[in-house]
């Protein structure tokens, strides 16, 4: 099935633009996981680098110029769909830094070890919190940066504090 996210809610790496490996190794860069024609454009208007464009109709999909993106993270906090993520593979020591929009309380603390989830809601690894960015201008959507083994750099999409009680979904 070509568009199976419509049946499962789970996107794959082939569904959206992924920054090329050499760009990821050069430092922080965004991934926009916005694949449908919805009437929305804050990502393109907020980007100070002009790295995100929505051509023509407001329902068109944003296109990223990865060479212009400097990884500032403004769009991550300002995307109403919480669909923009940050990846940085320049760290070395076989780890990568991932940044995600986060709207749960309380926030994890720097240095805390958290469970890391992929797009399907499966736990894939542990992560270490590096930074919690929550200035007033982010309007309560924090951006949380955490470190994961480099092989999970493109799949780490959510974190849960280990202290939170285990949830028991049905599958």
């Amino acid at each position: 099935m070509k568009h199976d996210y419509i049946n499962t809610g789970i996107l794959r790496l082939t569904d959206f633009q992924v920054p090329p490996p050499e760009r990821r190794r050069a430092g922080r860069v965004i991934m926009i996981e916005c694949v449908q024609n919805i009437p929305c454009n804050p990502c393109s208007t907020i980007c100070p680098q002009g790295a995100i464009t929505i051509e023509g109709d407001i329902t068109n999909i944003p296109v990223v110029d990865f060479s212009k993106c400097n990884g500032c993270g403004l769009c991550v906090a300002n995307c109403p769909g919480l669909a923009i993520f940050m990846v940085d593979e320049s760290i070395g020591d076989n780890s990568a830094e991932v940044g995600i929009p986060y709207e749960f309380s309380p926030f994890p603390e720097k240095g805390e070890i958290v469970s890391v989830y992929d797009r399907s809601g499966k736990i894939i690894c542990d992560g270490e919190i590096v930074r919690v960015r929550n200035p007033k201008s982010y309007n309560k959507t924090a951006v949380i940066y955490f470190r994961v083994p480099i092989q999970f750099s493109l799949d780490a999409r959510f974190i849960k504090r280990k202290a939170d009680k285990a949830k028991t979904p049905i599958h």
Partner: peptide
Amino acid sequence: KIGAYQVHASKLVRCGVPILT
């Protein structure tokens, strides 16, 4: 099919809540 915008579905599913179509 999921009727919601994919971005809303994504942010729920990655938290571990399955959407069973």
